[in-house]
Design a protein around this nucleic acid. Sequence first.
DNA 1: GTGAAAGCGCTAACAA
DNA 2: TTGTTAGCGCTTTCAC
Lengths: 338, 338
Amino acid sequence: MENVNLKTIADKLHLSTATVSKALRDSHEISNETKQRVLHLASVLNYVPNPYASSLRKRVSKTIAIVIPEVDDSFFAEAINGIEAIVQGKGYHVLIYLTHESFEKEKAIFMDFQSGRVDGVLLSVSAETVSTHHISNLQSHQIPIVVFDRICDEISTAKVCTDDYNAGYTATKHLIDNGYRKIAYLSISKTLSISGKRMKGYSQALTDNNIPVKEAYIVECTLNDEYNNAVIRNLLQSKSRPDAIIASVERLTTNIYLVCQHLQLKIPKDIAVISFSNLKTAAILNPSLTTITQPAYEMGKTAASLLFKSIEKKSFPLDTVVQLFPSVLIPRDSTIKK
Amino acid sequence: MENVNLKTIADKLHLSTATVSKALRDSHEISNETKQRVLHLASVLNYVPNPYASSLRKRVSKTIAIVIPEVDDSFFAEAINGIEAIVQGKGYHVLIYLTHESFEKEKAIFMDFQSGRVDGVLLSVSAETVSTHHISNLQSHQIPIVVFDRICDEISTAKVCTDDYNAGYTATKHLIDNGYRKIAYLSISKTLSISGKRMKGYSQALTDNNIPVKEAYIVECTLNDEYNNAVIRNLLQSKSRPDAIIASVERLTTNIYLVCQHLQLKIPKDIAVISFSNLKTAAILNPSLTTITQPAYEMGKTAASLLFKSIEKKSFPLDTVVQLFPSVLIPRDSTIKK
DNA sequence: GTGAAAGCGCTAACAA
DNA sequence: TTGTTAGCGCTTTCAC
């Protein structure tokens, strides 16, 4: 099949490409009759404009990027759905990039964006991200960026997130209220802001309840299941075994449950478990899992909407926007002794 | 910050853009000294080539598309990881499109691809997809397509999938072997090939074991949780209640478990459950879930590799390739009475 | 209301 | 080895 372009149509109709172009974009300069003829032929010939020619000329790509650590996570999956709902309506396209928690990858991706490949970026930073030059650097190229969930306080742009300090505090308080005092916290990064804030909430809740914060109870996990299992096993076999665990990310849940099974520790009798999680299966786990759940879909929608506000009106001041969403603690059996 | 392009570099170095272009692409025509000077200045100026200019000129986008029904599903999430692993290595970019099971959306997306936006497409068809014109139409524009998991027999291109007939048969046989005979099948689409094949395996297994196939036991579900819950509730409250359920997609698991909880039906005593699923939490559900699990990551990798074979060598015959992966039945407590 | 011409940034053929 | 030129397909002045 031939590739049909403006010239094809122009030639057949004895018009110029300029006229055809304008007709297709419904310009007022063009007579109705011409518009009809052009539109008709275009549809007959199945004309689809070349987006790259248009991008090159207009310096606009009609494309945004989503840069996230991973997809195999309910929060990000749901957030993508929210983003997509907005993007869809705008007729934009979505490039997706997974950093797998690598700062190097994140930097390389952002470097590439200087090319004008995308009109805006939705970012959730990697666990390894320790500086924000790549971000501000891109901003200096007038590419709007909205960070969501895993934000960086340092960068000056719109932030869509939950109140992680409070969430950490609430989770810890919930455990304390249910009779647990030896509470461990599984982090995924020392540097990640959300992890840090959740942890601060955790420490503060302990302190407020006269429970000393124990270094040994703060454990850093990774992307590696083997490693995480080992770390969790160690924790649960240590002589001062905790009686509760807070998992700062969804994916640690399975590790914890399996290690407990393996060690024949009963949840919540021997050990309580609460997880930051959007897992649909939380309610049907054995036992059902108490979660801190974020409004992922709404956060995705909001992040995308903000980004488009800036794309559509570049004077829109992203840097002043902080959209804080409430996350909710959903108490289930994993933290409540019968 | 200024946008630096070939001309910027050429001017500063008193070279032509052609020379700079060639130098950057390490052409043998260019002297080493010139290459060094160009490379150096490019890195100093932070030059990033405009991908759309290059795409326009070379008629190659260095971009592929993933078109899938949804992301919030472990199979697709893992498949994306596999795809990304390959794409990453090729220096390609990934556009992602979610059809949310809508045939209309799928068609519109494929229509757009005629523009040359992508060099290839990885597709898992929507549940509503009833014809394949949009696919063959795109193929006639020389865009290679690889279908994975949810394939269409009619289209002539590479297919990466599991043996769904066998999987359906095996699942059913497993239930029969464990003493269940009133086995229901939850489908998501009458037209979807994988759903049909899994169902055929189901029927055949029943027939082979002298169990009549009951229409009432074959239930079509949707994307709507409310609706699915109602349908499942009906099924489980009917006077001829089944004693086992096969869920043809992962996301129905939570519905089934919750309805059972609600109706106070015990799994697997009152009702067995087996699901096509890649859920990481399968092993820690209450009770642990027997699954038919597909090698999603490998399938994603294979699909992407095949696509690139065709992109890189357009004579590569995709249409003869069918990569059948084995899915595995992982028996757990949800189908095995104690 | 329509068209000619220039140009977005890059690459490829061809000249020098 | 380097440069000139043309052009990918589209949009946008500006002239008619």
